[in-house]
């Protein structure tokens, strides 16, 4: 069947089997491999993309169901060379290690901040509670999203000196 959608601002039309999962359509047909998958069972959230601005798990949405809708993937987060504040935040606050869950985490963060520009740490934790990260232990992801909330326009390189929440104690 033929489907059309707007993905990262580009209108695309493609022939797909009805059973093709959105995550495979994005990765295999459109070759946007920044969207990953991790579990099959809708538990891990590695495959999160934004559908009409809302995070969805693209392993549990058929590409056919997205016909006529708008999708944003990690490749659509930056505005050209300018990173989204969320992307900057993840680099500033070490919100990623292996990078596998990161695209999904950042997209959820973007949607959260669009909805609630000043989330409390617990609200951030709730927002990402459908996504699993095996590397970071989440605290730095929370800090990364807080960083983005505190820098809604991002940060120019010369002003990125930090005001981290990180406090390590040393004897």
């Amino acid at each position: 069947m033929q489907i059309s959608m707007t993905i990262n601002g580009t209108f695309v039309t493609h022939e797909v089997e009805p059973r093709v999962l959105l995550v495979h359509f994005i990765r295999d047909d459109l070759r946007l491999t920044g969207t990953h998958w991790g579990c099959d069972t809708t538990n891990c959230g590695t495959c999160v993309v934004l559908m009409d601005g809302q995070p969805v798990k693209s392993c549990t949405v058929l590409a056919a169901m997205v016909d006529g809708h708008t999708i944003t993937t990690v490749e659509g987060l930056a505005n050209g060379a300018t990173l989204d504040p969320v992307q900057q935040g993840f680099m500033e606050e070490h919100g990623l290690q292996c990078g596998f869950c990161t695209p999904g985490m950042m997209l959820t963060a973007r949607a959260l901040l669009d909805h609630n520009p000043h989330p409390e740490p617990l609200q951030i934790r709730e927002a990402i509670s459908g996504q699993i990260c095996r590397c970071t232990g989440y605290a730095t992801i929370v800090r990364s999203i807080q960083w983005a909330a505190e820098h809604p326009a991002g940060a120019a390189p010369e002003t990125t000196t930090s005001e981290s929440t990180e406090q390590e104690v040393h004897a």
């Binding site: 809708t42 959230g45 798990k57 549990t60 459908g130």
Partner: peptide
């Protein structure tokens, strides 16, 4: 479930 599943 979780907030993302609840979106759908």
């Amino acid at each position: 479930a979780d907030p993302i599943v609840r979106n759908r």
